[in-house]
């Protein structure tokens, strides 16, 4: 069953569209990196997928069901919202009891694996960020979910805790066979583990696909500076960069590149994603406008 499918999905807040024309389908069992700059619509997409937000247009289906109309699907989604909100006055044991009381399919063994290093009597408010993230993850995975959604899980973690969190996550989901979506604005965090990428930019899906296929279909062309025309084998120039008399192009290919006047290189995932994340026009060519902070849940 498709873990997450969206069809022309859009969400408008009072201040404008946070997400628009979002059509995507995630493959089952994939580890999906949902990347994009801050305010690109990542949290909005996850909010729509968990029924916390209602779509302004289009539709979203999670595990074949509309999370708004059929909230029973929420029992099969493990969601860790941004900042991993937990009840601060609860102890670790209380928090686990909360999850057990609100989920029919609660699996204490799965959750227990994450909690072995936490003292059950500690208050959540007294835990470190790393410990809190681990507890939130235990809550999400203890439901034995088919789909795990994590919103900026690394934002408050130091690199070491981040790596540890990722390890725990991968161990957990491998056992469950769940599909995972990790939303993050830091590409380095997701590129280690993701086999699928969804890239949002200014509320639109700019790129979606399997990592291998994306890397195979993009190339870096380096050559002497020249007026650009149609290059054989190039479908789209994603980014062009001038350095002196040299020209570097990041292109999407649709065939074999045979033009010998270009040096052709493979592109690293991080560079590819950054190129797509950049706004269509460079910031310098645009009059700076005040963009109000967009609140997205």
């Amino acid at each position: 069953m498709t873990p997450l499918a969206a069809e022309s999905l859009g969400k408008r807040f009072r201040r404008g569209w946070a997400l628009r024309d979002c059509t995507l389908e995630l493959p089952e069992g994939a580890i999906v990196g949902l990347v994009g700059a801050n305010g690109a619509g990542k949290s909005t997409l996850l909010g729509l997928a968990t029924g916390l937000l209602s779509a302004s247009e289009g539709s979203v289906e999670v595990l074949g069901r509309d999370p708004r109309r059929d909230p029973s699907v929420l029992g099969e989604i493990g969601f860790v919202p941004q900042g991993a909100p937990l009840y601060r006055s609860f102890t670790v044991a209380d928090t686990v009891a909360f999850a057990r009381a609100t989920n029919a399919a609660w699996d204490a063994d799965v959750a227990g694996a994450f909690l072995s290093r936490l003292d059950a009597r500690t208050r959540v408010g007294a835990l470190s960020e790393g410990e809190r993230s681990r507890l939130a993850l235990a809550l999400a995975l203890g439901k034995r979910p088919s789909l795990v959604l994590l919103d900026e899980p690394f934002a408050r973690l130091d690199p070491l805790s981040g790596r540890e969190f990722l390890q725990l996550l991968m161990d957990g989901v491998t056992e469950l066979g769940a599909t995972v979506v990790i939303a993050s604005h830091v590409i380095a965090d997701v590129e280690r583990v993701c086999d699928h990428i969804v890239l949002l930019s200014e509320g639109h899906v700019r790129l979606a696909g399997n990592v291998e296929e994306l890397l195979d279909s993009h190339r870096l062309l380096t050559g002497a500076r020249r007026p650009l025309g149609r290059i054989r084998g190039v479908e789209e120039i994603v980014r062009e960069r001038h350095g002196g008399r040299q020209l570097t192009l990041l292109v999407r290919t649709d065939g074999l590149l045979v033009d010998s006047s270009w040096t052709v290189d493979r592109v690293a995932l991080e560079e590819l994603l950054l190129a797509y994340m950049a706004p269509a026009e460079l910031p310098t060519t645009r009059v700076a406008e005040k963009v109000p902070l967009r609140w997205h849940g």
Partner: peptide
């Protein structure tokens, strides 16, 4: 206010 509704409202129990 504390965002914990995101936790409470995404569990198996309906709102």
């Amino acid at each position: 206010e504390h965002g914990t509704h995101q936790l409470a409202w995404t569990q198996g129990l309906t709102r």
